[in-house]
């Protein structure tokens, strides 16, 4: 290597974070105002945080509140930062780390389109029944299933549909809520 091009120092002090990465589900209560999703997503990208899944929808119309469910992967130190940085945003009311507070109920909905004829069609229906997937559209050569459940169940169903003629999948992303009588 040309010695002139060798890195000979930096203006910054770099250390490597070797702590274990954890996957957490956060619930964020926000004002339902224009730009709120960009604010949340922008915070994650600007600070280099991960988003595995993100869902958002208005939940309390009269108060104008939306609930955002974010699934993220980070070290415990960064997870604490993510929570504090989210809380710092003006339109954010509350942030709960559902994973930290106990095992939350987590559900996702997927629409799965499968095309096929003959024996594979029968097998498709049989599997759908086993997974409690509902047929929401059918034609002579295709089905659209609606399936809800934990993400791993949906992934398993999708994997099984691939050899049977999977055409396409849409997933809502994760919705999560804590167990027991307490609300957010």
């Amino acid at each position: 290597m040309n010695p002139h091009l060798r890195a000979s120092g930096s203006a910054y002090f770099l250390t490597k974070d070797t702590t274990k990465i954890e996957r957490h589900t956060l619930s964020v209560l926000v004002d339902n105002e224009p730009g709120i999703l960009a604010r949340i997503a922008g915070l994650f990208s600007a600070r280099g945080f991960n988003i595995d899944s993100l869902t958002v929808s208005e939940t309390e119309h009269e108060k104008g509140l939306s609930r955002i469910t974010v699934v993220t992967k980070a070290s415990p130190k960064i997870l604490a930062q993510i929570k504090l940085q989210l809380e710092r945003l003006v339109p954010v009311h509350r942030v709960h780390d559902l994973t930290e507070e106990g095992k939350p109920l987590e559900r996702e909905l997927a629409l799965v389109k499968v095309a096929g004829t003959g024996e594979s069609r029968v097998e498709t229906l049989r599997l759908a029944e086993a997974f409690r997937a509902q047929v929401v559209d059918a034609s002579i050569e295709s089905f659209v299933f609606e399936i809800t459940g934990r993400p791993d169940k949906i992934e398993q169903f999708i994997a099984l549909m691939i050899p049977l003629g999977l055409v396409e999948v849409v997933r809502t992303g994760l919705s999560a809520i804590s167990r027991g009588p307490e609300g957010m």
Partner: peptide
């Protein structure tokens, strides 16, 4: 403007 300044302000409004 709000898009550009979102990450360089404490808060912004349109």
């Amino acid at each position: 403007t709000v898009g550009i300044t979102r990450s360089c302000t404490k808060h912004n409004y349109l």
